[in-house]
Design a protein around this nucleic acid. Structure first.
Lengths: 194, 194
DNA sequence: AGTGGTTGTGCAACTAGTTGCATAACCTCG
DNA sequence: CGAGGTTATGCAACTAGTTGCACAACCACT
């Protein structure tokens, strides 16, 4: 039940059309929730039907034309209710970890290439977040809202940091020992006793 | 497409019945993939139908009676194929971060209680993982398989560590300044100049 | 006026995961 | 033996997210 609330939050920050929301979900909202434009349009329809949002009167109802939405009081109330609600964290579910475990059973051929690829992706994401932090959070402003937004971004930063560290360590642990243990096709020149 | 492969991995490690798998998913497998018993039974049916696994001959086909499965060569091949495949990491999607952002818009009332609750849950999970590490990974054994399994567990440990740190920091940042900034109903006794 | 790209909205079908419930076999205790 | 709990398998309906495509409006260039 998170997507409708993500949309309400985004619309409270700034009334938008479906496509604008999609772009915002790809950008800043993306570091804690992602969604495709189809999900967003469908959800906008539902939210309007339930009386949580409404289309701004300026927009015509024909297809292919921009339609902006704003949040109604009922929508704000629903968002406040949901925000204060108690929800348990969901257990981890990560395909990469699963594949690593599977590699332990069917053989680790080629898994290191995949680990390196992920490491690269996470490093890029991390430096992107650090850019955003530098740009959007100079050390002067300090409202509660700023702090909350900064905390959320920092979660993104810390998570990417975790991944890059874990991937580096895992790669380091898998590779050299494999080379040392494998007595075939390993050059191993210059480090034996003379 | 991860659940069937999680099941294949689990069955290769040890042939099991549906309920046994469910228990293993709640325990050790749970730190990288979770699943309910209904998902598992449904998937076992599909995997058997597709010729990846088969029921051990000892089991009778009646309902309510234990039915153990083992992986067939085709299943092992499929798992190896999937493990080596290239898959992009999925973007973060975390309701707690979303709620924190929403709190910045509709007000942060009561969110700190929720943060503390999550902190407690993550601390428990972390110490559970540390127990498992101490029990299952003594520093002597060192096969490639051990290393892979240990790396996966360490991802769980590091992730829980990230959460506990991030939650502690976020709580620390939200609370004292709020008390200092709010000039109403704050006792603030004994720390001013005499 | 016509073609081609961009912006924008939207349907339909599919895949994955969740929730609630039904039902059968088996074991234990009185 | 039969009542009640535990073990075990499974169906049906639902919710959430993904993929692929259709189509209208608008704009710019020729």
């Amino acid at each position: 039940m998170s997507l409708p609330h993500a949309i309400l939050t985004a619309l409270l920050e700034k009334p938008s059309s479906g496509l604008e929301l999609t772009r915002r979900f790809d950008m800043s909202i993306g570091y804690f929730w992602s969604a495709t434009h189809q999900q967003i349009y469908r959800e906008l329809g539902k939210l309007e039907h339930e009386g949580y949002i409404r289309a701004l009167p300026s927009a015509q109802p024909t297809r292919g034309q921009k339609k902006e939405y704003e949040v109604l009081p009922a929508g704000r109330a629903e968002l406040a209710r949901w925000t204060a609600e108690s929800q348990d964290p969901k257990p981890i579910r990560d395909p990469l970890l699963l594949r690593l475990r599977a590699a332990g059973v069917v053989g680790a051929e080629g898994i290191d290439a995949e680990l390196r690829r992920h490491l690269d992706l996470h490093q890029r994401q991390l430096s992107e977040y650090l850019e955003i932090e530098k740009r959007d959070f100079p050390p002067d402003r300090d409202t509660v809202e700023d702090r909350l937004r900064h905390a959320v971004l920092r979660a993104g930063i810390d998570l990417e940091t975790f991944w890059t560290r874990w991937l580096s360590r895992t790669l380091a642990e898998l590779e050299p020992p494999t080379a040392a243990a494998a007595d075939a096709s390993t050059p191993a020149e210059g480090n034996g006793p003379k």
